[in-house]
């Protein structure tokens, strides 16, 4: 008989440590870093479902993020609807948008799909700045600081860290479940060779729609978490192209083939960004410059992402790549 504790996949220990960080760490700045890291990890994992597994490189996820955040915020401010409910509704609206884009752009490949998603996110951006009566334009909306569970506003910074941990963990579980399910294999088959996959009876259209709408749904939910955490929303901090790029970048730098990749990417990049922004604020743009350089180097040198560098692969934490632990299953990509 093996020790029961060893049967638990190593990744759960990894997440366990992250959870302990969220519970016990004190100090506003470091908790801010932890919370933001978890939210961005969730966002990148959500992107990865369509961007990584299905190979649909979207640079329009800021659009979904904004749709989710604006839906819950507007419902809460105008009609006192709890953000928990608004969050689900925002997710559904974002998923419907994704369905629409998916149906329209079904045939587009590679950079052209990317361009169409950019155009979509720009349309959402322009609408949110122009519909001033509803969204207050570029002035933005403030969420009143009335604490309470129903209001999704908390006094204690640890609560946010724990909630964002749960968000990240749930998105991670969904992502790794998909990766190891039949759908995951179909998605990767479709990414590698759509014609061959189609000829083997895989319904490509359904798969693409499924992947993008699930990804959009989860992204919108992250949007509500993000807006409830910073309690302020304006088009510039939710809908800019740079936000879409950051979401995709975290997943790509971390590694798109493994569910843990985006989490790893967020753990590497988000603290780096916040620290650079905090300590080099007199040099505006330095953190973006470094990010651009990192992105460029990673896709040139290691397009599979850092999680697949052998050093990381040898760490047992990352060798496990799914909920269903199965040694014989090898990543077919």
């Amino acid at each position: 008989m093996k020790n029961k504790l060893l049967d638990i996949p190593k990744t759960y220990y990894f997440f366990g440590i992250l959870f302990l960080l969220a519970v016990f760490v004190q100090g506003d700045f470091i908790l801010d870093i932890i919370t933001m890291t978890f939210i961005w990890a969730a966002l990148a994992s959500a992107w990865n479902i369509s961007g990584g597994y299905a190979g649909q490189f979207s640079l329009g996820h800021a659009g979904f993020l904004g749709v989710g955040a604006y839906t819950s915020t507007l419902l809460y401010i105008n009609f006192e609807v709890s953000p928990w409910f608004g969050m689900i509704l925002g997710g559904i609206i974002a998923a419907l948008f994704a369905l629409l884009i998916g149906v329209l752009c079904f045939r587009l490949k590679g950079p052209f799909y990317t361009l169409a998603t950019i155009a979509f996110a720009e349309l959402v951006f322009i609408s949110s700045t122009q519909l001033r009566d509803i969204t207050n334009g570029s002035m933005g909306l403030q969420i009143p600081f009335e604490t309470g569970f129903i209001n999704f506003v908390f006094e204690d910074a640890n609560t946010y860290a724990i909630l964002s941990f749960i968000l990240m963990f749930v998105v991670f579980l969904i992502s790794s479940y998909i990766k190891n399910s039949k759908i995951g294999y179909y998605l990767i088959a479709m990414r590698e060779d759509p014609d061959a996959a189609s000829s083997l009876g895989i319904n490509i259209k359904f798969l693409k729609l499924f992947a993008t709408s699930l990804s959009a749904f989860l992204t919108a939910i992250c949007g509500t978490f993000l807006v409830q955490y910073i309690l302020f929303i304006e088009p510039a901090n939710f809908l800019m192209l740079s936000i879409s790029i950051k979401i995709a970048m975290i997943a790509i730098v971390g590694g798109m083939n493994l569910p843990i990749g985006p989490v790893l990417g967020a753990i590497l990049l988000t603290p780096l960004e916040l620290l650079l922004r905090g300590y080099t604020s007199e040099i505006a743009g330095l953190h973006l410059f470094i990010f651009g350089l990192i992105l460029l180097l990673v896709v040139l040198v290691q397009p599979k992402g850092l999680a697949e560098i052998s050093w990381f692969k040898n760490k047992k934490v990352l060798r496990w790549n799914g909920v269903k632990q199965n040694e014989t299953k090898r990543d077919i990509a």
Binding site: M249, L293, L296
Partner: peptide
């Protein structure tokens, strides 16, 4: 594709922030 798209995206980030 990922390299083709994101190298020039990274380059544009560097130029803008530069």
């Amino acid at each position: 594709h990922v390299t083709q798209i994101f190298v020039t995206v990274g380059l544009s980030m560097m130029l803008t922030s530069g």
